[in-house]
């Protein structure tokens, strides 16, 4: 689907005609680079259009299967926590009927201060979208996340995308697994659980998720094994350390 700039004119053989046409059109308007939330990992940020998760546009997150719902919620809240850690401001979490309320102490363990989070419990998806839209117009917010019970429809996604434009907010919609519908979300993430990283005593240290970027407008897709450091609010790529033993041993040799 990707079509780099100018490819559609590849049939035009005459380069001079092309130059003449360019002159006719005039210089393109300067591109406005929107603010974004970088993952801090070059492998991922390079694939996203502006070097990170664009703020002020809609992003869709979904679990890989029903059993991964907690992992998807964890990934969503980790993104919110990362965004909140960078500046003052609060976040709103609008929860549909099928989603359990997060546990305060668990949020602390994920690096998200529950005091900066407003939870709004609603009954239907329509109310979720209403509340998310209302939150987008509020002041002093940094992130809005909506947890819905069905697919994100085209019409609602367009509405939210337009409402989010220019607000500079991180807007995430978490939908259930296998509820795919065509919409205008800038990125679509699919999250599955993975074995957590261990410390040297073999205890669980950081949560890990198998993250698939299934759709990325103006970017490239990919999949990674991500881990989340709640204290530093930083993502890490798990594969480079744990699964690639030779690299690790090289490092150790260099140290020794």
């Amino acid at each position: 689907m990707r079509r780099p700039r100018g490819t559609s004119l590849k049939d035009v053989q005459d380069a001079e005609a092309l130059i003449a046409l360019r002159d006719l059109v005039g210089s393109p308007p300067p591109l406005i680079v929107p603010a974004c939330l970088p993952f801090g990992l070059p492998e991922i940020d390079a694939r996203l259009p502006h070097g990170g998760l664009a703020l002020g546009s809609l992003h869709e997150v979904a679990p890989d299967s029903d059993a991964d719902a907690a992992a998807a919620l964890g990934f969503t809240l980790a993104l919110v926590a990362r965004h909140l850690a960078q500046a003052e401001g609060e976040a709103v979490l609008v929860m549909g009927r099928g989603h359990p309320t997060p546990y305060g102490h668990g949020l602390v363990d994920l690096g998200l201060d529950p005091g900066r989070l407003l939870l709004f419990e609603v009954e239907t998806d329509t109310e979720v979208y209403q509340a998310v839209e209302e939150s987008l117009h509020a002041q002093g917010l940094r992130a809005v996340a909506g947890l819905v019970d069905a697919a994100l429809p085209l019409k609602q996604s367009r509405r939210l995308h337009l409402a989010a434009g220019g607000t500079g907010l991180l807007l995430l919609i978490l939908r259930p697994a296998q509820a795919v519908e065509a919409n205008v979300a800038a990125t679509r993430w699919r999250i599955a659980g993975a074995a957590a990283s261990r410390d040297r005593f073999g205890c669980i240290l950081k949560p890990r998720w198998r993250v698939h970027l299934d759709r990325c407008r103006n970017g490239r897709t990919g999949h990674w094994l991500l881990e989340w450091n709640h204290a530093a609010h930083r993502f890490g790529l798990a594969g480079t350390l744990a699964d690639h033993a030779p690299e690790a041993s090289q490092g150790r040799c260099a140290l020794g």
Binding site: G89, E90, V92, T101, P102, G104, H105, L107, P114, G115, L117, L118, L119, F120, E121, V122, E123, E127, Q130, A131, E134, S135, A138, Q139, G140, L141
Partner: peptide, 28 residues
Amino acid sequence: PALGASGLGPLADALRQRIGRRAIRLEP
């Protein structure tokens, strides 16, 4: 537009009146 200590206060009120559901806060 008067902003309180937190931007969430007016938003929580508006959500409560417009949609009529629970706006909750987690407390230890």
